[in-house]
């Protein structure tokens, strides 16, 4: 089905397929009418949740819900395929399956990053020794890799890579010789689309001034990332950069 203005209602209700959703979001970029109608729908329905009669939550629901959230999280770390199939057979887990996979992938990323940076930077890091070689058997493709340039003539450096791992995009950033942080300060990674920054992970460096972070880039809609930049932020909650750019590169 072609993305047209007629899909607005289904988009608003979240009933489009993933593919249709992506297409419709692309359509939204170019269709002002749909953008306005969507905004109007959001405004007109903003109060409707409060139509709900206050219900008394069932006893013990908090414990059950949180236990299942954390339990689910723990299971993933050592999930094999048999277990995964088992879980799928239980009710309602169907769309969690893909999430499980993506979580596993995050474990894999450091190893991939290490392999990548070995070839990129030519410097020998010993990350490979720290990672489990079994975890490297994932399908991944490199979209773009760049060397990060320091803003001032500093000794720091680093690399960034956008990788496609089974349909998910990860940004892997690794830096060396950056200054230590104070208090809640963190180094925040940003992906820039034009002038708009998108948060893309944060990290604090170790005592040697090295740091790394892998971030799953999952912003809705189509994006063309123009640059990657790292700033020093007062804490890990900055929605837009407050500190100066420490390292950056075009993409």
């Amino acid at each position: 089905m072609k993305a047209t203005c007629e899909q607005l209602l289904d988009y608003f209700n979240g009933t489009l397929t993933e593919h249709e959703k992506v297409q419709f979001e692309a359509h939204l970029e170019s269709c002002e009418e749909c953008r306005e109608e969507l905004k109007e729908l959001e405004e007109l329905t903003g109060d409707l949740p409060y139509l709900s009669i206050p219900e008394e939550p069932p006893a013990g629901m908090k414990e059950r819900v949180l236990a299942s959230v954390f339990e689910d999280d723990r299971e993933e770390t050592n999930l094999n395929h048999a277990e995964m199939n088992d879980l799928t057979n239980q009710n309602k887990v169907t769309d969690l399956q893909s999430e499980r996979k993506s979580r596993q992938r995050k474990w894999v990323a450091p190893a991939l990053a290490a392999a990548l940076f070995l070839s990129l930077a030519g410097n020998v890091y010993n990350y490979m020794n720290e990672s489990n070689p079994e975890q490297t058997q994932e399908i991944a493709s490199l979209i773009k890799a760049v060397q990060l340039q320091p803003s001032e003539a500093e000794a720091s450096g680093g690399s960034a890579a956008l990788m496609n791992e089974n349909g998910r995009m990860n940004l892997i950033v690794q830096v060396n010789d950056v200054a230590d942080v104070d208090g809640d300060q963190v180094y925040q990674v940003w992906l820039l689309e034009g002038d708009t920054p998108y948060r893309a992970g944060s990290f604090t460096p170790n005592q040697q001034g090295n740091g790394e972070v892998t971030y799953e880039v999952d912003y809705e809609g189509e994006h063309k990332w123009d640059a990657v930049a790292i700033t020093l932020e007062p804490d890990d909650s900055s929605e837009t950069p407050k500190g100066k750019v420490v390292l950056s590169s075009g993409l």
Partner: peptide, 26 residues
């Protein structure tokens, strides 16, 4: 309370509403 009541308002079933809570928090 708000999310549970809202979920309940949609599915009209306590068990399903709890299931929704679980998915939302996951």
């Amino acid at each position: 309370k708000l999310l549970y009541s809202f979920s309940y308002r949609i599915v009209k079933d306590g068990g399903l509403a709890e299931e929704i809570m679980q998915e939302v928090f996951i």
